[in-house]
């Protein structure tokens, strides 16, 4: 563990908790892409299947459990509890255009052709594009609430910190995982446009509005 990965995980956890709290306390999921949250639940499910078979540390196991529980709780709030506030008309990104190619790629490019490894690879590739429905929704509605912007900033920042973690691990342990690194770079690049708008607008208290 290094400080970059720790801060990255905490930023990820903060994002997940922040979104869950926003939906719960406002009793509304307006402006939130249910599809992205479904994809994140799928990412955690396929990545943490080793939850019961391999124990790394209390931290590792507890974070995985928290991520999975929060992901499903968020999906439940969006599609069940507060589904009346779910914005069908703007959450129209074709998620199958993400899942199918990513599924195929996971079969073709992986470290080991075993079910657990292919599912882990699928979750790595899927996570890199899972935010697209949310970014698409914001570009359609033309704006995002500030809390949603903070959520996206923390979520995008977590994988950016992981990239620094991978650089650190490469130089200190000689460890690197090309699949995780390439997918992590794609994931972070998808946020660049948003990061620019967030830094130049939201910080000064303006509402974030992506070019439609």
């Amino acid at each position: 563990m290094n400080v970059f990965r720790l801060v990255g995980d905490l930023s990820h956890l903060l994002a997940i908790i922040m979104l869950l709290k926003k939906i719960w306390s406002s009793r509304s999921c307006a402006g939130i892409s249910g599809k992205s949250q479904l994809l994140f639940a799928l990412v955690f499910t396929t990545r943490y299947l080793d939850l019961f078979t391999s124990f790394i540390s209390v931290y590792n196991t507890s974070m995985k459990v928290i991520y999975i529980l929060c992901a499903y709780a968020t999906v439940y709030l969006i599609y069940v509890k507060f589904k009346a506030t779910y914005d069908h008309n703007h959450d129209t990104f074709r998620a199958e255009f993400l899942v199918v190619p990513v599924g195929g790629l996971a079969f073709l490019v992986n470290h080991d052709f075993t079910p657990l490894e292919i599912l882990w690879t699928f979750s790595i590739y899927l996570e890199s594009v899972a935010i697209m429905p949310q970014l698409f929704m914001i570009s359609k509605t033309g704006e995002a609430e500030s809390i949603t912007s903070h959520y996206l900033f923390c979520l995008g920042g977590y994988r950016a910190l992981y990239i620094i973690n991978w650089l650190y691990r490469f130089y200190s342990e000689g460890f690197f995982d090309l699949i995780a690194i390439v997918a992590g770079c794609v994931q972070t690049i998808l946020y660049c446009d948003f990061f620019y708008l967030y830094i130049t607008k939201v910080i000064y208290g303006q509402k974030l509005s992506l070019p439609a």
Binding site: D50, Y67, H111, F175, F176, D177, A180
Partner: peptide, 10 residues
Amino acid sequence: GAEDQAKDEL
């Protein structure tokens, strides 16, 4: 292998 260590990451 080196990749196995990746699984210690979230």
